[in-house]
Design a protein around this nucleic acid. Sequence first.
DNA 1: CGTGTTATTGAGTAGCATCAATAATTGTGG
DNA 2: CCACAATTATTGATGCTACTCAATAACACG
Lengths: 245, 245
Amino acid sequence: MLSQACTVSIQELKKNCSNCNLKELCMPVGLKPDELDRLDALVSIRRKVSKGESLFRTGEGFSSLYAVKTGTFKTLVNNQDGTDQVIGFQMTGELLGLDGLGTGQHMCDSVALEDSEVCTIPYSRLDELAQQFHALQMHFHRIMSREIVKDQNAMLLLGSMRAEQRLSAFLVNLAERQKARGFSSRDMVLRMTREEIGSYLGMKIETVSRTFSKLQKDSLIKIDQKNLTILDAAGLQSLATGRTH
Amino acid sequence: MLSQACTVSIQELKKNCSNCNLKELCMPVGLKPDELDRLDALVSIRRKVSKGESLFRTGEGFSSLYAVKTGTFKTLVNNQDGTDQVIGFQMTGELLGLDGLGTGQHMCDSVALEDSEVCTIPYSRLDELAQQFHALQMHFHRIMSREIVKDQNAMLLLGSMRAEQRLSAFLVNLAERQKARGFSSRDMVLRMTREEIGSYLGMKIETVSRTFSKLQKDSLIKIDQKNLTILDAAGLQSLATGRTH
DNA sequence: CGTGTTATTGAGTAGCATCAATAATTGTGG
DNA sequence: CCACAATTATTGATGCTACTCAATAACACG
């Protein structure tokens, strides 16, 4: 795995966190210059993950966290009957692997939806560094807490929304995240299949497809395969936050 | 709030973490005696919360975590349309308040389902102590990670199980937690209403009631109001882990 | 003891899943 | 680079699950 780092050029190695344009989204927020330098060394291990390849799998030993440098991932939990369920999509700047910390083993699979690249953050070294730099420790806590809140909001979505609302909320969320990354929140490319969206939102692929068609018929979106345009952001938002049942 | 501590007798104050019978479930797991002593001082602030009363509410400033000493709580997220959804039930030894760490404000409400008591753990002091005692820091990370995994499993339940399966999984989980606390996993008292169960499981109160009746008809459980007896634990378990759709 | 809350059960219905057929797209090997 | 296979997506017809509405019963609380 470490040999993967060789695929990164010397030039690339020199620009880690310090001048990474994801600073605001990833770990290093609020760190002082010297703290950033230390973190740089930590995440110098890059790893490429091709489309469809796993970053880690359920049951594998946990040793590192991963920050998505480029690309998109999905996270899957293995249902006891052998089926999988998507429980999250991670895009640039988001952290992967927090699930493994509790037991020392990863509790889900992480699979790249497109050719992607991650920064590997060995937990033991993050921990060491966090002991020295309190701000990093605090920030790490905040990241974990936000992960908990995010999951709880997903529970809300799954527990009390109907199909149209779920999909709207999902698209609004995607748009927000795109915007936070400096991309258009109007036009985007869905990296995941209808089936993956359905798995995440607790609905069948046919229902996802029909709901997309309905949103399009109502002129809220334009959807052509993976290419999505949000035509009426306010309308979509009001659908997403509307009555539950 | 601090005045609540006065309701605790001197005698009670002397027996905190060190000889608390929840050691295995709560924070102090794996700490050395001197570390435990320090934690003792930390959690000496007890607080009683009567049935129906809030421990904290959405939007309130975050300053402390809470360990349930006795009793049961429910956690609610406020849906944007004004309705609430139960996203968890906390029993003895479980930690509350992790949601507030990310933003500095609580992101959910926590309400006592019966007269309860919590140990207040000021975050700033926990943090201080964790800097000194690395084991505590590690343990705190593990607790947060497990919270994430727990929520992800709840997403799985909500996204891919049908009513009977959801309720079975819920009851099996309750039984396991009762057992971990040294109580009977066969007979228990449900502290929550049917409506609260329904809210948590993403189903209506009528469906909860009907599903209880069905499980009883099939001789898997005996349910008389809040009194539950699990007659066929294996059968219930196999329902809970059975096919999704 | 009465009132408000909580729970049970029935009848009818809406929403989503299932089954099915077809189309569009992606990936692969010749 | 093209042809074929496999995957992914769309749309229709039908059925089942769980929601809605409703009536009644049991319980909790003051």
